[in-house]
Design a protein around this nucleic acid. Structure first.
Lengths: 222, 222, 222, 222
DNA sequence: AATGAATGAGCCTTCATTCAT
DNA sequence: GATGAATGAAGGCTCATTCAT
């Protein structure tokens, strides 16, 4: 379809090579259609390359998919860097954690298909999820969220209760990504931009801090 | 379309008719493989019936899928019936709502594939989600959850704030279904039985009531 | 779509490429079985190529059929070229027209299946007939036959009468193609070769010129 | 679809039985779609009967088709009856023959699908044509048309020439049936009712009588 | 006589992949 | 590195037919 003519002897720098063109196109298509629904032809056509190119550059359709999902789900930066300037108070710390976790999930600067793909992978794991959890989610929980929660609750709560609280916090955040098909239907005019992320983070933080405080208070009584 | 009455004198328990055999088999296959991944042949083979049977009893692969998803996602009873014995205090009412919503999502008596399928459809909508939201989710939110939240907060909060609270509540619940692939990886020994549903519901209720109270209190001050 | 150039040094005569193999085979099969009766498998098997080849080179079974029918029905050359050396007298002109029209329909050098296919399409239109009429039949009638008839009749006859005469002339010719199943049964030993075409054309010409003259004469009297 | 209730104990006379309903419906469907294109389901649905009824009353789809084609192609009455009042002059006789042959082919009182089916069978014989030719066409030609032509031409013409004349006459007539797809495209507003049949017959008669006379005259000279 | 359910064969099409260049 | 052509394996669906009632 799209014929490209090489006119200059010197290879043009701005011209994406076939491999990259495939990666971009495949990300969108996989995000829209899922692994089974996407076809190699749809990908190569959108990329403007030959059908055989996928099998040439990547071994497989599956191989290409894995490569793309892993890239889409990898964190921007290590949590420790993001959290560097975290304030002293555990309340502020949780607020910051929630904000950055939300931003990790919903960052409007990231191409939409990456978020879509991550949501897809979370609901329907194909193997990339293990790596995603190991590299991003579990460190966030174990090294940042849980310590903060412990600090907030003293040693009043059992591990089980702490876990439930962690789930409550992360669940509220994740829901904005995973539950999007539902929330979009319930609130059709609810858009998520940079401002909304801040608003939502503030809401979740206050909501959760109150819940944590309450659970801690009642635990003290028992 | 196809109405069937069993009039045979001897009640044959183990004998299913073709239509039902297809429904059972298709549910599992769709849950395992998704709509695109499932093949009619896989379904009919597992059901032990002819390939053409799907086309005869249901019009389409898509029609069969829709029928199954809607059935898998439909609430056992109308929310109004479930809520009949709801107590007077709005706090208890919210507690009850959360419990029943969680039970709707996680009911251990339901075959596992139904929950899997519901999660799949929510993360990866195919058209059946619209009906699912219209019939189950939206009524729950608009006719039960929101009124209770309004009662709990008086008229102190804006619609936006109420919506965020509703999302926080539903998000915590939904996360136990949608986020299962993640929670299973984070807490490998976390099983969800009848007892856990009660425990989780109680946790979410207390956590959320505190959050609601706090947001209401701070709103009053302004 | 698919442009192909043979650049190989050795002119391989017997080797056809896949596309051409399909065209040959499909022509015969369609002529024998009709569009509905023919199966892609029958075509590809006879062509000795893969089933998917039809879909690759032509989009559809329907597309392939259309392509073949249009090719089978297209005149060897434009009528204007054929008529270049037409003589001056309108009588001779009509004679020539009839001959060339008959030759277009019955040309013994054309593979028999092309004629069969043309007859089939004329009796059982599938959409290709529209184009066939527009490109071949209507120009012949409007630009060549009708002017000649007008010249032969002066302005003595109404449009309706001229149309009927045109139908009489074309009907006699067409009948040798369309009515072949009947004429073969009535005259089993009636073969149509190059000589017969000339004989038939001469017959139709003399028969028709007399009819035209008679109709013109009686019209003059009124 | 169409549920029919038997209310009266006595079988109603006006109610077509299943067999007849199939015959009516099948005629139309076969005429529209051809043998291969028609489906048993289309027929039984139009007839308002069960799918299995065709195989029950007729053995086959093929059997049903044959039955219908034979019926559609059978002549209304024997030619000898139709020709009873034929006038003495051979000219008038030919005129009458042409009219009745045209009427046989185009009779507006006959359901349109019968004509369509006959045309289909003539262009694309499936076996019923043999009987059609034997019973209707050949007798017309041999016992009525040829004798009249012989009378008109004396013994001036060879058998071959007489045959060609017969073909010219019958071809003009047949073309109004077989060539309808073409004539409709060339003359979109050309309808064939009872009046047109008379007009066409008169035209063909005068046209042909002149042709015959001319061929006879020139033959005499040689 | 008539029917709803069920069947197996087969059709068109599409897909991921490979081959020759 | 990159491509157009070609392939075999299914896949969804439809069809004529038969079975049990």
């Amino acid at each position: 379809m799209v014929v490209r003519e090489r006119k200059s002897a010197a290879p043009e720098i701005s011209e994406e090579n076939t491999r990259d063109k495939i990666l971009s196109a495949a990300g969108e298509v996989f995000a829209e259609q899922g692994f089974e629904g996407a076809t190699i032809r749809a990908i190569t056509e959108r990329a403007g390359v030959n059908v055989a190119a996928v099998n040439y550059h990547f071994r497989d359709k599956a191989e290409l998919y894995t490569r793309i999902v892993l890239d889409a789900c990898s964190a921007r930066a290590a949590w420790s860097d993001v959290m560097a300037e975290a304030p002293n108070s555990p309340q502020e710390c949780l607020r910051s954690l929630i904000y950055h976790f939300l931003e990790y999930l919903l960052d409007p600067d990231r191409p939409a298909w990456k978020k879509r793909l991550m949501a897809r992978e979370m609901a329907n794991p194909t193997g990339a999820l293990d790596e995603l959890v190991d590299k991003n989610i579990r460190p966030f929980r174990n090294e940042f969220l849980m310590p903060t929660l412990r600090e907030l609750t003293g040693d009043k709560l059992s591990r089980r209760q702490l876990s439930l609280i962690a789930i409550s916090v992360m669940g509220q955040c994740h829901y904005f990504l995973l539950g999007q098909p539902i929330t979009q239907r319930l609130h059709p005019d609810f858009k998520i931009g940079r401002a909304e992320i801040a608003e939502i983070a503030e809401h979740i933080a206050r909501f959760s801090l109150a819940g944590i405080a309450e659970l801690t208070r009642t635990a003290r009584r028992s």
